[in-house]
Design a protein around this nucleic acid. Structure first.
Lengths: 213, 213
DNA sequence: TAGATTGTTAATCGATTAACAATC
DNA sequence: TAGATTGTTAATCGATTAACAATC
């Protein structure tokens, strides 16, 4: 499990580079220097060069970076050249919203199955995928080469479901449940705690208001 | 606009403290030491004490922290004792999912209005709130004391809509559009870039797979 | 070639952890 | 009072920024 020593702070910035480079590419920009990119993204040129050099030298002295090439390379670093199949656990509003989001497919994430405890939702279709009962989950994971699970269920059941997912070979969990999962460290978990995010916004909003009236 | 010098890293951790304390409170736990809490949350006791002491001394030597009191105090720091009205711009799947999420009300965030460009969606109801056309937005914001806008529209229109929101007195934007907004610095923006989050998961998943086969 | 800009080392800054005196 | 645990200062660690030699 040899840690490659690249900090999560760096990883977190890669998708943003990827996004800006994608836009530059679409605009037909061929090359860009770290300085130009830094002005666009409002970060330091130093940081861009340091971040990229964690993964290799993608630029050329005196020239800068080739936009198309760098875009492709960051995509590879992020693993977007690979295909992963994912399932969504929880067919509520949020689960259905994510299931309907077609852009994930463009990045290699294939929506393959959806599950819910609530039998009223079973049979419902989301983008051509039929919601199945929880009992079918184990078998489905194994037979369909699923390695990512998206958890959009209430926090009460989330920890137990996460354990079941792991036992059946899930390698990564995108967790929208408002609870910290308890899984082995070789399982990748990415938390999206929406209410935490809203509370942070709330803090900043109230602090600003306090200071200004 | 005097900066109070509390880092966003600290702010980001507050909702998690709040969540754990809420659970302890519900379990009837009366007091807890930074050491016990640190074991529960898998952080250092030092960090907990440092974080809290940015806002004042909430504990007592030899005793620890009173759970109920600390919970309340963190809630106040986060501004959860105040009420804020928010609107959702974009009545697509994600917008509707957020509109249907009732827990925000419990924290003082009141879902007050919803808007969409698509006239097919106008008139639709989400939790008792009728979707209105974009033209009604300006007036609605002013007449209903709205200070938070949730942006769940495609990135193409997001930057322009954000500017309109700001012109009409919105103080904070919870941005789900996959683009960086360009608003004055006194406007609070909290980004939730879902695909960035998924790409980070992808990186970690692929790195782990690379290292293990 | 001269100019530009990278890759990388060194300096700085900030955040986390450790230690301990204060005190309940 | 003695023991426990905070609040806070000092030490360490890591991340960011600056500087510059290498090189296209």
């Amino acid at each position: 499990m040899e840690e490659r020593g690249i900090s999560q702070a760096v990883i977190q910035r890669l998708p943003r580079y990827f996004r800006y480079l994608g836009e530059l590419k679409d605009e037909g920009v061929e090359r860009i220097s770290s300085k130009e990119l830094s002005e666009l993204m409002k970060v330091t040129a130093s940081q861009i060069r340091q971040d990229l050099n964690n993964f290799g030298g993608f630029g050329q002295q005196g020239y800068g970076y080739n936009v198309e090439y760098l875009y492709q390379e960051i995509g590879k670093i992020l693993g977007l050249d690979k295909t992963h199949h994912f399932i969504i656990i929880g067919a509520g509003n949020l689960g259905r919203a994510l299931g309907n989001y077609i852009n994930f497919e463009r990045r290699g994430f294939i929506f393959s199955g959806m599950f819910d405890q609530n039998l009223d939702l079973v049979g419902m279709e989301v983008r051509g995928i039929k919601v199945q009962p929880m009992e079918s989950m184990e078998r489905f994971i194994k037979e369909n080469d699923i390695d990512i699970a998206v958890l959009t269920i209430p926090k009460a059941g989330a920890v137990a479901v996460a354990e079941r997912l792991v036992q059946n070979g899930i390698k990564a969990i995108w967790n929208f449940a408002h609870v910290d999962l308890n899984v082995p460290e070789n399982i990748q978990v990415e938390n999206v705690h929406l209410s935490d995010s809203l509370m942070k916004l709330s803090y900043n909003l109230n602090r600003y208001m306090r200071e200004n009236e």
